[in-house]
Each structure stands twice: as structure tokens, then as C-alpha cells.
Nucleic acid binder design. Sequence first.
DNA 1: AGAATAATGAGGATACCG
DNA 2: CGGTATCCTCATTATTCT
Length: 692
Amino acid sequence: MLRSFSWPILQVKRMVDNNSGGEADNFDWDTEDDLEIDNYAISAPSGLSTPCGEAVLGSAEASSSGNSPNSKIIDHFVGMGFSREMVAKVIEEKGEENSDLILETLLEYSASTLPCSSNSKLIDHFVGMGFSEEMVVKVVQENGEGNTDSILETLLTYSALETTAPVQQNPDSGNCSSDYEGSLLNDFSDFDSFSETEEIISPSSEEGRKLLHLTKMGYSEAEASVAMERCGLCYLIHICNIFLLMVGRMSKFHLDSIKDPRLFNCCIENGPDSTIEELTDFICAAQIAKAADALFPLEDKPFSNGSSHKKRRNWGYDLLLRKKKLKLEKRFDEDDDVVHLPNPMIGFGVPNEPDKITHRVLPEAALGPPYFYYENVALAPKGVWTTISRFLYDVEPEFVDSKFFCAAARKRGYVHNLPIDNRFPLLPFPPRTIHEAFPLTRKWWPSWDTRTKLNCLQTCIASARLTDKIRKALEDSDGEPLLGIQKFVLEQCRKWNLVWVGRNKVAPLEPDEVEMLLGFPRNHTRGGGISRTDRYKSLGNSFQIDTVAYHFSVLKDKFPGGINLLSLFSGIGGAEVALHRLGIPLKNVVAVEIAEVNRNILRSWWEQTNQRGTLTDIQDVQELNGDRLEQLIKNFGGFDLVVGGSPCNNLTGSNRYHRDGLEGKDSALFFDFCRILDLVKCIMNGTKSMIV
DNA sequence: AGAATAATGAGGATACCG
DNA sequence: CGGTATCCTCATTATTCT
């Protein structure tokens, strides 16, 4: 019942029906990996000890009345949800130096005072969570104020009734037994279609209230709309709140982590199996990660030996996700929503091949503006593409192997909402075979190496030792080498993309040869202080220009005056180069790229090609929040195209150590793509309707 | 000389296909 | 069930920089 997709074309044309309609998974209420509240209590304080989340900071500043030395620290803790008096008292007692100690004490106090706090305080507490005052008063009267758990349960049940009753008749919904969470989860996790869900849980009369509710909780209005549009996040938050209340704390800090888009994934992946335990697991992991961020300011980087702080940003997830992965593996065995890769891998069609598809029906939510284009490796672990598609408005991925465009294979999936008729390729055609690409090597090519295409260009090259070993093995045999040797050599050549450069001599490709194969201008990545290793790495992570340009070509007619481009994970500028080579003028380009070498490459290409538009580079996708986007969009009136190929290193088979799927610390940045795309859509639609 | 940076070599696992 | 492909990471060593 769940996870049924609507990829019309795929279903009709390519998919052998695999929708066997498995039974609904049963609920998993076991507590095999119980959340340890102790752990939580330890981890969270350290995280809270330093100002970290924007929201926390923001609220602290907003409410800050003076600049006395400890007003800030008081505000800090007040921002976490503690009362001002209590914070002041504790700071008086313990001094303001040791924030860990302060927090611990605060927690002790609040744990002991919460249950017997004054009636009005208790009511405020729940009203602060978004319940209406009347409802809270009523429920507190019914339940007595001693048992906050049952108050919350009842509140949740009531509010669920309030929103679902008009549409859905649930005979059990009247009682507030312990399985209420189950029914709630069933309701909100019915993700068959978001629009349907939306109808059920947010009838139009409720919408404004919910939006208000979310904005009150610290969401920007745009984010709140996204959340509501997506899956009725309100329920999710309620459920998380149960846990937070149990732990005895409720603060913006927590909400911050709930806002993490990965939570969507957590819930959606688990579907009806989502348990409180899993959700709380998730939050806990998020807290740990956040705690790490807060604990170690940017100056000292204990986890990374020098480079990205992205690494530690996500390390807290590892614990959880490893656990979760095991569970998922079990479940996915029965799951049959696996994306089948097309064979031949030509997507909706490639130049010079028959079987083109020129028409498809996109889900309404997917329609632009803006156009979007997302790319990643085709051969990702099971379920990854299903998730990606689900997050990108259920658009069917287009799987294309670049071997139909150039002399090297590159199997990639692209999710986009571009038109697909009247595509045209870049001219001149690049070399399509190894011999065309490297004519000088032809005379060294042995007859038994029958390759005509290279394999995927990767980020690493074969070692000198390997090519030496191959040379020796070949020299040892007179004339035609033994079949065993041939097989070994061929295997290594395929694995490492070796080419023949002399008698018995194979070699890895040079960086400029890779540039040529990928469709970049020669020396695109050369010079400017970039090491050879980095060149290989950047190139190996890049788009194949001819392939991407073929997909982008449909934009040429639509944007004769030029295009505004938001390029996420832009790397060495594959999207920019592709558009440029198509002759589509680049008006305003915002490129987000973490690696400095890559930003330099793009910047120098930009200058060398005498671009007349403006290039804005941003270092980290995390910087690109609603405010920043709003400002950018206001400046030049919206993006026409949002492009991104998020990190694949946790998806690719080449990764021996951390092939963790979409949850991997780098590949999880996919969710930032979604977040940003959603924001862009919201802001642009918002501005349009305001103008009109 | 010692620290920072770059190059090197070794090293499975997953998933698909026939 | 073997054959095959995969935008790779880690520890160590070499090189460059200060």
C-alpha cells in the first residue's frame, strides 16, 4: 500500500510490473535498541553549552534586553526553554563560567519542578507547544496536572481528532490508549501521495493555524509551507515532542534538529514502521552531531586533519544510521520498489540512436519554474534512487551512460523537470571511441585488447607499480602472452582505465586527456596552484559535458536572453560549461562549492571566457538559508535553473569503507539540494503571487 | 629541521547480468 | 554462480614549504 510510485512512463514502457502490493508492514514497537536517556542527557548539555543554532542565537539576541556580561548567557539558556528566574538563580549559584554545570543544574531543577509546577506554567508549557489554550486547560483538568505524559497523550489525540475526523472515520480514534501513536503514524506516514495526505491532515480551514504554529516554533514561513506541503510535519513534531517532553526539555534547540530534512527521510523510509524509538534515535543522533559542532568551534578541528568541518557535522548520524541500516536491510529484502536500470542505458534517448521518448507527464508538484536538474551515480545501493525520486516530487530518473556521447562510460541518473523533446547534441561530436580519442596509441594496442570504450573516469589512477607489473608480465612472455596473462592485464586495464602508450607499456590517462573526454576545455583544471591529485579528483567528480548539454539544450530557445543559474555542488563548473557551450548566456550564476580549488577553477574559467554575467560563489550549502536565497532571488528575479550533483562517495561501489547510502555523511547533502530547491520554489512562487 | 602538503600503494563490497 | 563494473579511502612515504 505504501511506496507505490507513479512514474508513468517507466511503468508503461520499461518496468516489468513489480508492484506486487506487499502487505502492510507490521508495527515495530519493540525496544531492542532503546534510546538511552542517560546518553541523551549527557550529550545534549555539552551541545548546549555553546551558542550554536542560528535560531537559538537569534532568539537570544532578539530577547536580549541589555549587554551586561551575563545577560547573553542567561538569554542563551532561556532560549533553550528554561525560565529566566531559574537560569538567573542557577548562574548565581554556580557562576557563569561552567556552562555545562549550569545546564546540568538547570536540568535537575526543571526535572524536579516540572511535574509540580504551577498550573499556569504547565498550561503555558503546552500552549507553547502549539496546542490551543482551551484544549490544554480542559485536558489538564481532566488528567490532573501531575501526569504530563498523559496530558500530552490526550492533547495529541484531541488534536489528531480535530484535524482528521472530518475526512477520515476512525472508529478507534476516540480512545486515547497507548496505541494512539500508531494511528497517528499511520495517518501521517501514508505517503502514497503527499497531496492526499495534505487533504486529510490539513483541511484548508486548518492551514493558517498550522502555518502559524510552525512559524511560532521558529520556522521561517517558507520552511513552514514546505513542511506542510510535504507531509504534514506537524504530526511529526508532535511525536517528537512526546519524547522531548519525556526527557523533560523542550526547546528551540530541539526543534532545530527536527527541522533537519533528514528527518523526513527517516520517517519516509520507515513508512508505517516508524517508531518513536527511531524518531527519537534520529533526534538524538542529530543532537550529538550538533553537540559536536557546538563543542568544537571552528578554530580547532579535532576530527579532521585539516580540511572540511563537514566531516564532524555529520558524525553523530553514523551511530544511528549504522543501526538503522541493519534494520532497513532486513526490510528491503521484502521491499520491491527497486529501480531497474534500463538496458541500454539511454534515458529518454541519445543522439544517433532510435527509441527516443519525446513526451512524458510530470507530476504537477514537479513543474517549474524553476527547472531543476539533479545528478548522481546510477549504480547506487538499493533504494537510493527510489528515495531520491520520492524527494524530488516523484519524478522518474533518467539513467544515461555517457558512453553514448563520448569515449568513456559514465552511468548516471538524472532527475529533472526539463522538457525532453527537441534535444540536440553539442557539435562537433567528441571522439566516440578510444582510437578516435587517442589515435597515436593505436599502434601499441594489442589485438586481444578489444576495448572500444573506456570505463568510468574515476578520481584515482593506477599506481606506477601496477603498470610496471604489467610491463614485466608481458615482457616475460615471447610473442602472444599466455591467456592467463592476457586476462590479468585486460582486467587491470578495465579496472584502471589504462591505455597503451608503448610496447608492453600501459599508462593511466593524463589529466588533460580526462578533460577532453569529459568535454571540458583543455587545461580547464590546470595551474593556479592545483595539484595533480586534485585535478584527477575534481575531474572524476564532474559531469560529462556532452551528456548534460544534450539535456540542457532544450533551454536554448526558452532563454534567448540568458539564464539565471543556481548551481549546487558545482565542482569545476560542469553545468556552467555545458550551458556556455550551448550558447546560452549566463546572466547570474550562484555557485555553491565547498572545495576552494574548484571555486578557483570555476572563477578562472569565468574570467577567461569573458562572461558578462555575474558569478557569486558560496562555500557551503548550509550557508544558503531562506534569508540568503530570498535576498538573491530578490536581486535578480528568481532562478531559471537549479542544478546539482550531490556527493556520491557514500553511494558508489568504489567506496570500500563508507558505502552508507544516502545517509552517508557526504551523500546526505542530497537533502540540502531538496531543501534549497524547495525554498527556491516557495520563495519564487511567493514573490510571484505577491507581485500579481 | 620540522611542519604542511602531495603522491603512492594497498585495499573489498555491492549489485547487476546472463 | 561467476563475470564485471564502480564520480573511492586510508596509511604510509615522498616532497615542498617555512
